[in-house]
Design a protein around this nucleic acid. Structure first.
Length: 262
DNA sequence: CTCACATGTTAAG
DNA sequence: TTAACCTGTGAGC
């Protein structure tokens, strides 16, 4: 389920609900038992998201492995509980229980977060965090990212790769996934099939501006519907032309052949 | 019960 | 380009 906006929303929730507090950590499923034992009883100091990567900084010596690094992959998710009630919006409520819970973090107030299905769940030091972040392109959601899109543009402008594929490359733009690689080109009236090098600078500026706007909005309000995503064959909301779907870079892409000519 | 599928990434062919 | 991996859900038999 998770693109970058989901990870940013989780980071915000960690910051609001658990930061500054002693946290109990457990791994009922057992696959992160040693890491949970290390974290148990520490204070969560900070929560940050870079693209689809979540980093939780815990109390501990500066040169130690005090960061929890999580990447949800395709099916991972955090489920939030408050006083026994599931709080995860937009997703069917899970029954309470330990099934599949690789890590449960519980604050003194009773709020807890359960991690299931993640691709990455590990304890790392600051240097490892820097290495991961350094490999990422600018994250449109972060305030400290590429304001005008010029950094990402340097990767796009000379590339023969389709823009719809470049948007999925985390070293070009961090945090976008299948949804935004379709929605943003639609809003910018750019075909996802066009090579990066064939985009005009103004088209890229529009695309980047729209990316930032819709990804940031999604952090605040989890979107339920999209203009194109998974709407193959349905009429385009703008012009009524049937939305097309194909595979691009091995994964599906949707576009309006009229509003986004090649 | 089994199977396909999910907003992702990596490694192998 | 394909397969494998992480886990839960819903459709179909």
């Amino acid at each position: 389920m998770p693109e970058g906006y989901v990870v940013h929303a989780d980071a915000r929730r960690f910051a609001e609900a658990l930061a500054g507090r002693v946290v109990r950590a457990a791994s009922p499923q057992g696959r992160f038992a040693s890491g949970a034992a290390v974290l148990d009883g520490r204070v969560l100091r900070e929560a940050q998201a870079f693209g689809k990567h979540l980093f939780l900084r815990f109390s501990g010596s500066a040169d130690g492995a005090r960061y929890l690094h999580v990447h949800l992959g395709l099916i991972g998710a955090w489920t939030w509980w408050d006083a026994g009630r599931a709080q995860t919006a937009g997703r069917p409520l899970l029954a309470a229980g330990d099934s599949g819970v690789r890590l449960r973090l519980t604050g003194a107030g009773g709020v807890s977060a359960e991690l299931r299905g993640a691709t990455v769940c590990e304890l790392v030091d600051e240097h490892a965090v820097d290495t991961v972040v350094a490999a990422l392109g600018p994250d449109p959601i972060r305030a400290d990212s590429d304001e005008d899109g010029s950094r990402a543009w340097r990767r796009v402008r000379g590339s023969r790769t389709p823009i719809g594929t470049l948007l999925l490359d985390q070293s070009v733009v961090a945090g976008a996934g299948l949804i935004w690689r379709c929605e943003a080109p639609f809003l910018a009236a750019v075909s996802p099939h066009r090579p990066g090098r064939e985009l005009g600078e103004q088209e890229w500026a529009t695309l980047w501006r729209e990316l930032r706007r819709i990804m940031r909005a999604a952090v605040d309000h989890r979107p339920e519907e999209f203009s194109l995503f998974r709407r193959g064959g349905e009429p385009c909301l703008r012009c009524g032309t049937p939305i097309e779907v194909a595979r691009l870079g091995g994964r599906p892409v949707w576009w309006c052949p009229r509003d986004q000519p090649r």
